[in-house]
């Protein structure tokens, strides 16, 4: 990467303001899940600051819930490393998909890649930043906002989780809804529809064959296989 001067189309503040509305569904979803995570960790004896530290360093959502198991059994860091690689293997596809968008962002690429979660990938890959706004700063704003929500929610959960009385059951559906909407946006162009269908079909098949706990890696393998074998068909 080296030292390079990058022309920015707008200030960070302008990009941040443009990005904020796009992050609101994730605010709802992460608040529920992050608070739940903070409470769960506190239940297992990992109150403040442990849960917050986990969220700040690992920032890997569902894997952090899996990691609770790793923290409450015999010490096995190698298993933790391998398991988190497997559970998060879907990120490999995010990098491939975002490579062109994140190119030429210089040092911004470090936080952009470090903070690349499902929701950030989905938005940065599906939303076109407004014309007058710097793309790199827009992507960074989405990444930082999502990260901030997750860490803050964990903090709230680990400090005062038990005091919350508002019934949030179902609120985490905001994340499912986000993916559904962005899926619709992705398959709007006709040439994307076949690929979208392949993604749905392969993952449903993986769910049926391998069950809810082990579907990600088989689904990814099937998607890759179909996309590579069907390359000629998909290129037209």
């Amino acid at each position: 990467m080296g030292k390079q001067h990058i022309e920015r189309k707008s200030s960070f503040a302008a990009a941040f303001r443009a990005a904020f509305p796009y992050s609101m569904p994730v605010l709802a979803g992460f608040m529920v899940l992050g608070i739940a995570y903070g409470i769960l960790m506190a239940d297992k004896g990992y109150g403040f600051p442990w849960a917050v530290l986990m969220s700040a360093v690992c920032f890997c959502g569902s894997m952090q819930f899996v990691a609770i198991t790793l923290l409450t059994t015999a010490f096995d860091p190698l298993a933790a490393l391998l398991l988190s690689f497997m559970v998060n293997a879907r990120h490999l596809f995010y990098g491939l998909s975002l490579m062109d968008r994140y190119r030429g962002q210089g040092a911004l690429r470090f936080p952009l890649i470090y903070l690349l979660c499902d929701e950030t990938f989905s938005i940065n890959c599906s939303v076109e930043p407004p014309e007058q706004v710097d793309k790199g700063y827009f992507y960074l704003s989405i990444s930082l906002l999502h990260y901030g929500y997750w860490v803050t929610a964990t903090l709230i959960g680990s400090l005062l989780g038990s005091l919350l009385t508002f019934d949030t059951t179902g609120m985490d559906f905001a994340l499912t809804a986000l993916f559904v909407v962005l899926f619709i946006e992705q398959i709007r162009p006709k040439e994307n529809r076949l690929s979208g269908f392949i993604g749905l079909a392969c993952t449903v098949l993986a769910l049926v064959l391998f069950g809810a706990d082990n579907l990600v890696v088989p689904a990814m393998a099937m998607i890759l296989l179909v996309l590579v074998v069907g390359r000629k068909r998909l290129c037209t």
């Binding site: 491939l96 992705q186 749905l200 392969c202 993952t203």
Partner: peptide, 12 residues
């Protein structure tokens, strides 16, 4: 990949 991955995330 992007449309296929969004499909994966919905099912996931």
């Amino acid at each position: 990949l992007p449309p296929a991955v969004m499909g994966l995330l919905v099912v996931y």
